[in-house]
Design a protein around this nucleic acid. Sequence first.
DNA 1: ATGAAAGCGCTAACAT
DNA 2: ATGTTAGCGCTTTCAT
Lengths: 334, 334
Amino acid sequence: MTTIHDVAKRAGVAPITVSRVINNTGYASQETRERVETAITELGYIPNVLARSLRSKRTNTLALVMTDITNPFFTVIARGVEDTASESGYTVIYCNTDESETGEYKYAQILAQKQVDGVILVPACSNSKTVEFFQSNNIPVVLIDRSIPDVETDVVRCDSVSGAYQLVKLLIDLGHTRIAVLSGPREISTAEDRVTGYRLALAEAGLAGNELVYYGSFTQAKGYDLAVQVMAKTSPPTALFCANNFISIGALKLLRDSGLRVPEDVALVGFDDLPVNMVIDPFFTVAAQPAYEMGQRGTELLIERLTGGAPDECQEVILPIEIIVRKSSGLAHF
Amino acid sequence: MTTIHDVAKRAGVAPITVSRVINNTGYASQETRERVETAITELGYIPNVLARSLRSKRTNTLALVMTDITNPFFTVIARGVEDTASESGYTVIYCNTDESETGEYKYAQILAQKQVDGVILVPACSNSKTVEFFQSNNIPVVLIDRSIPDVETDVVRCDSVSGAYQLVKLLIDLGHTRIAVLSGPREISTAEDRVTGYRLALAEAGLAGNELVYYGSFTQAKGYDLAVQVMAKTSPPTALFCANNFISIGALKLLRDSGLRVPEDVALVGFDDLPVNMVIDPFFTVAAQPAYEMGQRGTELLIERLTGGAPDECQEVILPIEIIVRKSSGLAHF
DNA sequence: ATGAAAGCGCTAACAT
DNA sequence: ATGTTAGCGCTTTCAT
């Protein structure tokens, strides 16, 4: 292995001079600089960032901890994070918790051991343990997509209450009175907020008595499952509001399997759009969140905090949701 | 920051003893072990793996470099890698090259600087530069999904020639004589191999004169594009063979946009299945590759090499492909 | 503009 | 079963 020492010897300078050239810190005459650079390429020298970080106390590494790497919504967030981080010279470690609190805490240990400079976290639960762990180890955290009660961190998210309200209002305006919501886990802020928005819209329309609320998880299988339950009722709903894209897919599957047409027999709306990439015929009426921007803004906030550019108090950034009306919500009155 | 020194002092032992307890290396009496563990929890001590790795020359970190993180095929591979690696105590760094040779080489630098123990690589090109760079820095590489000419590495892949042959044969048996192949970049082994399999099937059926070969890239947009080109011919094909899932989606989109029914007007088959998760109504007849197992076997091979358990010569593992017949290929004769 | 010395936190090597 | 010493490769600090 070639070290900074070898380069220094070859260039006839001290190791620290090589360091200064590599990192562009401090002075170095044009001539020295060239000699060092020649030595570097001749030797094929690769700096050891472990040693660098051990000494400098900075790894220039961020971690993105998310709950479901198979969901395009999070994949797009990851892109936003990656692009923004690498622009500022940071690399990103991706961690997938599979919506598990234990998995999240396990990764937190690993990341602290790896001395990451900061963490972008999509929390898998409403428990503040992970955040507190990071903070007690002086690792700044930015929450993304979901918030957690009683913690002091920067947050970047959308207004799920409003998005849900708009989606359900759209169904009500179409004439629906029996609308069910199929949501995620009760402890997740977005799952709760979307139910809240749903309730708001119903209440406003004088339909508070018609509430049909189902909690589950943000998966296709659970979406199918919840749809089975709600459609088995003696007077089933004429419209479904699904709290994320995978739940929408599961619910649509159940409806088709039951011989029900969407939107003719049952209307469907949901959170989170599917990427153009994967869809042949865009069909779902959705509340689309700006996933890329969420990753971007979250990373910007985190880097600001790391470089001392952020204000003392924590910031909460709320990004706008776009309602995209397509076929699944239907046009007909009931 | 709490160091191994602080723990040692609190437990009344030498730092090396703490090290031995943490890493389960060498002896330690039950009593000492307990004293150390108490001190660790009391102080909330987190080992600094940077320092550990600097000294021990092992980071217990692998890198997975892939070409398109948004493609579920690679996401599933990533799962296989992650699960296998973490079972053996390795963590994984994920890198996305976006099919760019430059991006790939850039990541290679970063990974070498980070001193990763080994790399699982889905090459973005047929160029051996990246592999040679890793090897010259004593970092073992396992190629996955795609191979590269003239390099000595372990490889885990599927038999694309055979998969393509079977798919095209299926179309021929259905009566098709004008079949086009929409493939990926010419320099990618899988893109080439799938064309080779296509040619084999045509030749065998005495249809060598009917070849319609289109190279492009493994994206939905390019799939659409190539389909535009081929369907504009004066006597367009009655069947399309798409070299990956995204190309299939793009091609299907173009056919629908042109008012053509699949499979009634044009039959469609392709490589790589879409995950159940994301599909409402499985439609494509595909050659499905065991993505999870590919990640798994590749990681196993790499870890064997790192721990000295692998034979000297490089291994090539060919995993079986499954042909799944669904609606898109049709049943009718032409 | 350049260098010498020291030390980041840990473990390999060698004691005892 | 435990400890001492040294040093991994780099950069901080303080010189010159």
